[in-house]
């Protein structure tokens, strides 16, 4: 029975054979290059940055876990697509077309297996979420962070140990925290939405005007890292950059004392 239809381009000839192979090869490049890019990424330094938090490894582990899982599904489905394109090309497939409207059993299989997998991911990740966003430590805040166009204002309790008193110590874009200690931040905004993003601590939280939102974490290594604004806050959003310094308790206290003296000198 004649299957050729439409314009001349679809007539069987040598050119069609070559062109068809070319298209199938093109589709094959998707899984090959897709996997290739992800294998190359860590070497190019374009991958999860160094993690210096206690909870970050859980997030990274979850990322890797989902990457492997979705990667497997990605490779499988893309390869099946290519194999079918090759095997069931009109020229190659000499068998009669399988006249079928589906298979109840197959539908059940590919409904239940993904459903179970997705449910598993959903439950599997809950602990990590609870640790970062639900189980708030019961301690007084280490500092208050107030975002505003286009800077981070930081406010540490003064010698009285209480926030929002006259002796508070203020800095701008210069965030210091002691290492290996539980930190609790009260995050606020003066004007529009911002987002408090510490890539290396796997912390992100929008700052919402009118609300005080708690953010907590524990840093594990000494060093200096970026504080990024991750929510569009106006034209200067790109330059709303802060510096995070993680240091020993001693260095932290020295720094705080130095800031306090600088502040008093001005007053």
């Amino acid at each position: 029975m004649p299957v050729e239809f439409g314009p001349d381009e679809f007539k069987t000839n040598e050119r069609r054979t070559i062109v068809t192979r070319f298209w199938i090869f093109l589709f094959l490049l998707v899984p090959i290059l897709g996997v290739g890019v992800f294998l190359w990424a860590p070497y190019a330094g374009v991958y999860l940055p160094q993690d210096v938090s206690t909870h970050g490894h859980k997030i990274d582990h979850l990322f890797t876990f989902i990457l492997l899982l979705t990667g497997a599904v990605f490779i499988a489905t893309e390869v099946v697509l290519v194999v079918f394109m090759w095997r069931y090309d009109r020229e190659r497939n000499q068998d009669p077309v399988k006249f079928t409207h589906g298979s109840h059993n197959l539908e059940m299989v590919w409904t239940i297996i993904p459903a179970a997998t997705l449910l598993f991911i959903a439950i599997y990740q809950m602990n990590a979420w609870a640790e970062v966003k639900i189980d708030r430590p019961d301690i007084p805040p280490t500092l208050k962070v107030t975002a505003r166009q286009f800077e981070w204002r930081l406010q540490y309790p003064g010698p009285d140990g209480v926030l929002d008193t006259r002796d508070d110590i203020h800095t701008v874009n210069d965030l210091h925290i002691p290492v290996n200690e539980q930190i609790l931040i009260h995050l606020e905004s003066d004007d529009v939405l911002h987002s408090f993003f510490l890539p290396n601590l796997r912390i992100k939280q929008d700052a919402v005007p009118g609300s005080t939102i708690p953010v907590w974490f524990r840093a594990t290594e000494i060093g200096a890292f970026d504080l990024v604004c991750a929510e569009l806050c106006g034209w200067g959003h790109y330059k709303m950059k802060g510096r995070l310094t993680i240091e020993s308790r001693e260095d932290f206290e020295n720094w705080l004392e130095q800031k306090r003296q600088e502040q008093e000198a001005v007053q």
Partner: peptide, 18 residues
């Protein structure tokens, strides 16, 4: 489910790459 069914549709067909 939709992706699997599209793959199921081309399985055993006679594909014309227009």
């Amino acid at each position: 489910i939709k992706v699997f069914n599209w793959l199921g549709t081309i399985w055993g067909g006679k594909i014309e790459l227009t």
